[in-house]
Every structure is written in structure tokens, then in C-alpha cells.
Design a protein around this nucleic acid. Structure first.
Lengths: 224, 224
DNA sequence: CAAACTAGGTATACGACGTAAGCTTTCAGC
DNA sequence: GCTGAAAGCTTACGTCGTATACCTAGTTTG
């Protein structure tokens, strides 16, 4: 990150994002981002109201990466699965940034676009405005959680430290009394790590769509 | 919170919890908790390794409040709904503390008990160890998210400030271009507030259980 | 019963943080 | 070249978590 003459808002955001990705949200510091551009901390305040404004921009950048699939004439739930997957694809490169998204989906422009599309599909599915809103909120927040809590993820990217923490966590589960916690002990592996991230996310999307379709979905599987 | 002669770990946790409930997680400060007990900040370090240890204890207290329902012979998914509801009932009085729970369910003793029960029910449902672990993680984390993102919740309890922020948020949605975001504008109300918390949580549990039962659930509704 | 140990409080201090206020530099457009 | 505004700098303040060293009351022990 060598600095050019003039500071640039987008590059500041990029720097903050790289810190988030590498070391987690708490590592993002006004002083630190400034330092990477060889600039005084106070210089950032010409580009952002405050630190929260910087984090808003980071969240916005994640949301901007979402490539909304074009609408077509497939059943709504298939389109919904694609929409959610597109959102996932944008978040997965930046798992440490996901906590920012809970509050901010309805603040950023591209978050509004995602929400609008979600609501549209739910309306096509025949949901009332109220039901659609509730399901949309739940679905998007659940998606964020899916990334936030992907088993085997640690705040830092350093693979050595991550593996170490992971092993420690699993080891702790394995020392539990198997009489009291038989299933936890048996599932120590899958509880702490994720054999296939792809499968994890695919099933996650499927679960959310299933929840949206409701308990009667399978009874009328192609209902619009 | 007047202080007695000797500091007491449980009362420190209670103080921290009351701060969390009243003003949010960021308001919890070693100095502040100490002050409420008329004690030097460093005194807390005789009872907790560090601030994170204090927060661990806060999270643990929430989990300790879970009253696990007794196992019976109803279908697993009905018992699951009750289990999840019990977890919800423990979290709902402390929504600001919920972010602590994502990482800590498998650390606290009572979190292990909840997880064990969840895994047991999923095993009864015929799930493999791997599938059960994945569904259990998702379900518990989704539940946490349900409380964390309940529409219309702000970090502070002060009802005046909360209402103000809520109104502002909704007003912003209503100023959007209805041609671009018709559904968002139409759903501004339910997107920002929650008419009935009870219904919101009931449907949330229902959604999670539906997701667990999978797309084929309704086809064989009483399958064990 | 005095002496030694210990658990739990205090005092002081350090470095990092976000950011307010005011000053200085750079540079585009006249 | 002059001017005004945009952008970066300097200094400073208050808050945070916590390391280190100390003190003191209460218990244990020779």
C-alpha cells in the first residue's frame, strides 16, 4: 500500500478491508489505516465522518460486490436460491466483515437492491407484505450468520494459528465426559470444522429457502 | 449496586449484565463495573483473567438461564421447537448480550447441555452425526441471530431514543424512490419494526424447525 | 501467641485508541 | 501570480485495557 500524493477514499476503504480480512474487525484502527498510507490519523477525517463512517464504507463495499442474478421465469424459490447464493459469494471473501452487515443492509444502496429483489420474489410467491418483510429480514440475516459462524473459521488468516486454535477447540470437546455429552463428543469433528465449505453453504441456502416455503412446501412442491 | 466488604464474582457479572442490558456491549468497561462496586479497576483482575473473561461469564450467565425442557415421547420436531423456545426465552431478556453467544455456546457448560440435547433430537430424527452437527450449529446460531436482529431493537433501552431512531430509519426508507424500490417502500413498516415479538419468535422457531426437517418434511409429516 | 503466608484490595503508570481544535500546505481557476 | 477551498498536519485530551508493584487484613502454622 504505498501512498500516492493525494489520499483517496476508495483506497482507504480498500486498506481497511485488507486489515479486516487479515486480522479481523478489531484490528481496524484509524491510526493503522492512516499509517499504511503514510499519513496522519486525522487525515482520514477529511474523508469519513468518523470511524463508523469508515466501517459503513467497508460494509458497503461488500454489498457492492453482490452480482444480482437477472430475473427470469423459473419458480420463485429457484431464483431465490440463486439470489441468496449471489449474496453469499460476495460475503465469503470477507467473513470478518460480516458482523457489520447486520445493521447496514438497509443503509447501503446495494443492500436495498438485494432487499428489493428478495421482497419481489416473496411477493411473487404470494406472501403478504408483512410476511415477506419478516421472511426477507430473517433470510438475509441468517445468510450473514452462515458466513459469520462457518465452523472452523478464526479471526486471523494465518493458517498456522487458525489450525492451532481449531485443534485446541476440538481437543477440549474430546476431553468431555462421554457419559454426559455423548453426541457432542461424537460430533467434535464436524462441530469444530467444516469438511466442505461448498456443501455447507449449499445446504445453508437450501435450508433458508425451505424455511421460506414453509412446512407445506413439499406437499405442493411446484406451487408459485 | 452498593458494595459490601468483599468483592464477589457473581455480583460483578450481574453488574456487567445490567450495563449490557441498559446500554449495550460497548458500554461494558472494566472501569465502569469497578466503579459500581466502589473499587479500583484492577480489583476485577483478581476475579477474571481479563475483560474477555468477564464477558465469558456474562455469556455463561445467559446460557445458565436456559431451562431445558424434559425429554418426552412426542415427535422429535415438537420437542425441538420447545428446546429452541427455551433457549430463546433465556436470550430475549438480554438481547444486547447475544453477540457474545456465537463463539461461546460450545465453551460454557450449559451451552454444551443445550447442544447435546439438540444433537440428541436430531439423532432421533435419523440424522447422521455430520448432518446433525451442521444442523445443530446452524439452528443455534440462527436463534441467536433472531434475537440479535429483532426488527425495531436498538442498543439502548431508553424508549424515547429508541423510538426516535426507529422513526428516522423508517422515514429514510419512505423517502426512497418508489419506482426503484417499490417493495422496500411498501414494507418500510414491517422492515423496521415488529408488531408482535411473540409472533416473530414463534414463526422464527417454526422456520428453523422446518429447515431441519428438510424439503421432504411435509410429505411425511409424522416421520421420526 | 507471634510469625509467615496469602487472597484481595490499591496506586501508579504505560501505550493505544478515537477525535476535537486550530494551523499549514497544496492546487485549481481566475 | 492571487485567492479560496480542499486536504493534510500538529497538538492535545480523555478513555480504554492492563502490567507492575505495593499494601493489608485474615488465616494458618510453629
Amino acid at each position: 500500500m504505498p501512498a500516492q500524493k493525494r489520499l483517496n477514499r476508495d483506497e482507504l476503504v480498500a486498506t481497511a478491508m485488507s486489515v479486516v480480512d487479515a486480522e479481523g474487525l478489531e484490528a481496524v484502527t484509524v491510526r493503522r489505516v492512516a499509517q499504511q498510507h503514510d499519513v496522519t490519523p486525522m487525515a482520514l477525517y477529511r474523508h469519513f465522518d468518523d470511524k463508523d463512517g469508515l466501517l459503513d464504507a467497508v460494509a458497503e463495499r461488500v454489498l457492492d460486490d453482490v452480482r444480482l442474478p437477472a430475473a427470469d421465469d423459473r419458480p420463485w424459490h429457484e431464483q431465490m436460491a440463486d439470489l441468496l447464493t449471489a449474496f453469499l459469494d460476495a460475503m465469503r471473501p470477507h467473513p470478518n466483515a460480516t458482523p457489520l452487515l447486520f445493521d447496514r443492509i438497509l443503509s447501503a444502496e446495494s443492500g436495498l437492491a438485494i432487499t428489493e429483489r428478495t421482497l419481489t420474489l416473496l411477493a411473487e410467491a404470494g406472501m403478504s407484505v408483512d410476511d415477506g418483510a419478516e421472511h426477507a429480514c430473517k433470510a438475509l440475516n441468517f445468510l450473514v450468520t452462515l458466513v459469520l459462524t462457518e465452523p472452523g473459521r478464526g479471526d486471523d488468516t494465518d493458517p498456522a494459528a487458525r489450525d492451532e486454535a481449531l485443534r485446541a477447540k476440538r481437543a477440549r470437546l474430546l476431553t468431555l465426559d462421554p457419559a454426559r455429552y455423548p453426541h457432542v463428543v461424537a460430533a467434535a469433528g464436524p462441530l469444530t470444522d467444516c469438511p466442505s465449505a461448498e456443501a455447507y453453504y449449499r445446504r445453508g441456502v437450501e435450508s433458508i429457502v425451505t424455511a421460506m416455503r414453509g412446512p407445506a412446501a413439499a406437499a405442493a412442491p411446484t406451487a408459485v
